[in-house]
Amino acid sequence: MKRIVFVIFLTLAAASVAWGQEQTVQNRPYIDLRPFHFGLLVGTHLQDIELNNIGPQTIIANNGSQQTYTITCDQSQWDNGFQVGVLGEARLTENFQFRVAPAILFGSRHIEFHNMDTQAPDSMLHRSQDLKTIYFTCSFDLIAAAPRMGNHRPYAMLGLTPAINLTGSDNSYLKLKRYDMYLEAGFGCDFYMPFFKVRPELKFMYSLTNSLDTGHADRLQDEAMRPYALSINKARTKVIALTFYFE
């Protein structure tokens, strides 16, 4: 008898939960039916950069003397930043949207140089640079969304992001190019609130081009900086971004 009562109790509980889910009131049920809409975005991100060290190099000084250096260069950690922007999104089909999102990314990368020559003076063994960056970006993303379930809707996205570097000093060890292009992919979820929709999204961005300004070393006025500037020949920037979209 106790088993029968227990089974009946579980059945009634499951039916109650199912009925409650069916009776969930959808907030803003027609918001996704609009052909086009706008919004705002804010978020945070982590920046890293892949640097290709060239190994031993021979530097010819202005007076004609030669010296061989072996200098390694790397970003010591993922550095954080933040971004703000706007968005415009077009409804293609029931499950696909196309989004354009201009934004400004603020950040910095801490670069470390290590001279492997133990005979070098102490001043030449270690150098560092805070590579500050401000990028104007414009993401072009295709969003594939699942059917809406109550007041949330998960999705995946893929896109391209051209970027313009608004910073760069001619008196620094490394300098990045003015223009870059990122491939980005990620996922998120729409949450439908009574008065607006919020969309947290996590995405990974990877540079498709060599981001390093390879001609920068030749323009340096300080001859002692050239071995560090010439220690790498390629750079690929990476970004992990957590963004909140409000519509």
Rank of each mutant, 00 (worst) to 15 (best):
N165I: 12
Q119F: 15
A144P: 07
D130G: 11
L160C: 03
G85A: 03
G55I: 10
G43W: 02
D117M: 02
A145C: 04
E94S: 15
N165A: 07
G55W: 11
A103D: 04
L46H: 05
L87C: 00
S65F: 07
P56Q: 09
I164Y: 05
K175Q: 06
I59N: 10
S65G: 08
T118D: 14
N115K: 01
H126S: 10
I71H: 13
A120V: 05
L174S: 04
R127N: 11
M116H: 15
P56D: 14
F106A: 12
Y69R: 01
L174E: 09
P154M: 09
R153W: 01
A90M: 09
F140W: 04
N53F: 12
I60Y: 06
D74K: 15
G159Y: 01
G85L: 06
D130W: 09
Q47K: 14
S123Y: 02
D48T: 08
T133I: 11
S108L: 07
S108K: 14
L176F: 13
H45L: 04
C138D: 00
S169T: 09
D170F: 08
T72F: 10
I71Y: 11
V84D: 02
H126N: 02
D122K: 06
E94N: 14
R153T: 05
G150H: 13
T44M: 12
F113K: 04
L160F: 12
N80H: 15
Q77P: 06
S172H: 00
I143C: 02
Q75I: 07
G85E: 05
R91M: 01
S76I: 15
G159V: 06
I71V: 09
K132Q: 11
I164E: 08
Q119W: 12
H114D: 03
K132L: 06
G168W: 05
H152E: 15
I134K: 10
D141K: 08
P121W: 00
E89H: 03
L166A: 03
A145R: 04
E112L: 12
R148G: 10
S139M: 10
C138L: 03
R109F: 11
A145H: 06
H152M: 15
A145V: 00
I164A: 10
I60G: 11
G168H: 08
G43A: 03
D141V: 12
L131F: 03
F96A: 10
N95D: 09
N95P: 07
V42C: 08
T68Y: 14
Q66P: 01
K132D: 13
N165P: 03
M116I: 03
R109W: 06
M124W: 15
F140V: 14
L160P: 02
H45S: 09
V86Q: 06
D48I: 02
A103F: 06
T161E: 05
L92M: 09
N151L: 13
V42T: 14
V84C: 05
F82L: 12
N62D: 15
D79H: 12
A103C: 10
I143V: 15
A103W: 01
A156N: 05
Y173F: 03
I111R: 07
F113Q: 01
C73T: 12
F96W: 12
Q83I: 02
H114E: 14
M116G: 00
V84N: 05
L142D: 07
T93Y: 14
E89V: 15
D79N: 13
L131R: 04
A144L: 01
L174K: 00
E112R: 13
A120L: 07
